[in-house]
Design a protein around this nucleic acid. Structure first.
Lengths: 192, 192
DNA sequence: CCATTCTCTTGATAAATGTCAAGATTTTTT
DNA sequence: AAAAAATCTTGACATTTATCAAGAGAATGG
């Protein structure tokens, strides 16, 4: 599964064999069954995590025990809890495999070493961060501007692969509506 | 006004006189009157922008000409349009001074040079980016989890300085509700 | 393959928020 | 200081979304 990661990085820049050897030496490939937690609320998150295969969702649980899905991540995306990673505080999030999933984990200390040793890698990562910020900003824009129906259609447009892959009640919690509302929206959208 | 920026950076790390001289040589301090646009939709944004004094808001305008405030930034924060900066595409956003505002602008090419020459600076910036991502994520969580009233109270809690500084209709558009709804929420919140 | 559990949909009703219109208040301009 | 413009609030009503309850449908485990 390391090859998936290698292919992903090499689509952005070329690294030497030595560099790859180092990266591989600090990489851990771990498999999670559907429903297993990659990160459990309360634990400190110490990794950078790349999805080689499968699908996970990041979510928080509110005072009424309702789950709110912050993000879905599929193969060739990253996941994790940046807040816990950065501040070394217990995470307030859960990350759950919603399919059988293979994750490549690199401990943050090792990750920092890679970035130090390999400036190319470092700049790839920073460009990924930038893109990820753009994505988050678009999400915020959608959240404050759109009606529930518009949010759903927007999601379909931007993540068509995901719409059929994630359970609907999780999609509802991602969009910030109840499953019932999503169900009704879908019914209306079909008619059009 | 350069001193404000210097003080901000020096609260995080120390740079040499030479390094400061270089940074200052590529910095542009620009003043904006209340209501003036720092960035106009359609223009390409080429800068990194630090607010020395004042307050701006970043907003988009939707198909019905309704404005949606994405973020407020005051002194000691950054502003700009990362998407336009990164992709060199016309911006879809406006940035408006909502007070008389002083901004320190550094052209992206110069900014990249600073980061190359001064690794300390570069790592300060990347840690700021990380924090900013955490903030955005919390915003997303609030947007999908909270009722309008909770969003307002949450805003008061996290940005007490801002609540009295920004016009209410802009705050409403930041929270994703109409000015009328915000007005009613405030009335209820007082009673409690 | 059946039973159980989980997920999705539908209906009835309640609650939250939006829309439109008008008046009060504040700010800006002259 | 007065007039004009912009902002904020309030009321009546419409629309959207949530809640609760029930049943249909799908996935899961023995």
């Amino acid at each position: 599964m390391f090859s998936v990661f290698k292919k992903y990085i090499e689509s952005k820049a070329t690294l030497s064999d030595d560099e790859w050897a180092f990266i591989e030496s600090v990489s851990n490939v771990k498999k999670f069954r559907k429903h297993q937690l990659v990160l459990k609320e309360g634990d400190v998150w110490n990794f950078h995590a790349f999805i080689c295969d499968g699908c996970v969702r990041r979510y928080s649980t509110d005072a009424d025990n309702v789950e709110h899905t912050i993000q879905f991540s599929i193969e060739n995306w990253w996941t994790g809890d940046r807040e816990s990673l950065l501040n070394e505080t217990p995470s307030k999030l859960n990350i759950e495999a919603i399919e059988n999933t293979t994750v490549l984990l690199i401990h943050k200390d090792d990750f920092d070493k890679i970035c130090e040793k390999i400036p190319t890698f470092s700049s790839i990562i920073s460009s990924i961060l930038q893109k990820s910020m753009n994505t988050m900003q678009k999400r915020i824009q959608a959240d404050i501007s759109y009606t529930a129906e518009e949010k759903y259609l927007h999601f379909l447009e931007f993540y068509p692969q995901l719409a059929n892959r994630v359970p609907r009640h999780m999609l509802a919690s991602y969009l910030g509506v109840t499953p019932e509302t999503l169900s009704r929206i879908r019914k209306l959208a079909y008619k059009k």
